[in-house]
Design a protein around this nucleic acid. Structure first.
Lengths: 160, 160
DNA sequence: GCCAAATAGTTCACGAACTGAAGTATTTAA
DNA sequence: TTAAATACTTCAGTTCGTGAACTATTTGGC
């Protein structure tokens, strides 16, 4: 009963298979995270920012990490601030920049988000702890490369 | 130079790491696929449908596989049909349903899409062939589970 | 055969999320 | 002190997808 998609998985190349898995997991995570449980007041961007803010971070940096335009970070930060989850602090090194920093509530909310997200992750991925760890290993490489090449144009850059 | 995100990767749990990798790869793929190369006339949905249509498939089935509403499939199918890449055929088993089926041009376009997507996949993920194969293995599990649980509500179980 | 209910797909108005360009505040350097 | 660069903000516009109401076809009871 587990392979009855009438989707012929084997007809796809490994690369396409991988992409489909990534797409599927991504959609599921977004759905479940925003939709069902934690989506109380948090949009996609807000969730993502919350996840990234393990420690204070400049908005420009967050824009790079999320691969969104700076204006998207502004909007997300506004929402989080309005809910008292983050606080804006001027960067001591550069008075033009803001550091986003979790408040007490923000830390609590983040812990909850991480817990819920992990649960959703296992539920929707069907992976074991072990497999999740393997995926996390690949993810680090992917994230590094993606953030790196995402910062530059489509062609220049990574001559590695 | 490869770990200079000033993003403290190690502070995240494996689950969150995996999610971030998935998010990053997903965004990159969307960007590069739609934006740069193949996005000639194809939106997200059109690309996705094209990938799935290795063989004729009912629209409802495609809605399940893509995890989108049926109306989204209608729109995508319309675009693909207008470009002569697919053809609508009545399902012999059920006259209410349509089968989407690639035309000659559609097959060619799909081959090109798969080739380009694979290239983009390796470029943006930074993975080796071997790692891609590992990821594809996990992806099958993920895709199975996601499509399965995506078809029903968040709580009830398709015990079929 | 005929009617009602269920199912497959379609249409359309709407909302969420993101972008890009123009604007404000601050730094850097001449 | 002034000009250029940088960090963020504002806002209008685009894209994508949903959900509800609609059409067409099947299914099942009479």
């Amino acid at each position: 009963m587990t392979s009855d998609h009438s989707d012929n998985w084997d007809l796809h190349t490994p690369e396409v298979q991988a992409m489909m898995g990534v797409f599927a997991l991504h959609w599921q995570l977004e759905q479940r995270l925003n939709d069902a449980r934690l989506g109380e007041q948090l949009g996609r961007m807000e969730c993502h920012l919350l996840l990234l803010l393990v420690r204070p971070c400049r908005m420009g940096e967050l824009a790079r990490l999320t691969m969104k335009a700076p204006s998207a970070v502004t909007a997300g930060a506004g929402a989080l601030e309005r809910q008292g989850l983050i606080r804006r602090v001027r960067d001591a090194d550069d008075g033009r920049a803001w550091l986003l920093e979790l408040t007490q509530n923000g830390h609590a909310r983040r812990r909850q988000l991480v817990a819920d997200a992990s649960e959703v992750f296992y539920e929707t991925s069907g992976l074991t702890r072990e497999e999740a760890r393997i995926l996390a290993g690949l993810a680090q490489k992917i994230h590094n490369k993606a953030v790196q090449s995402g910062a530059v144009g489509p062609c220049e850059g990574d001559q590695t």
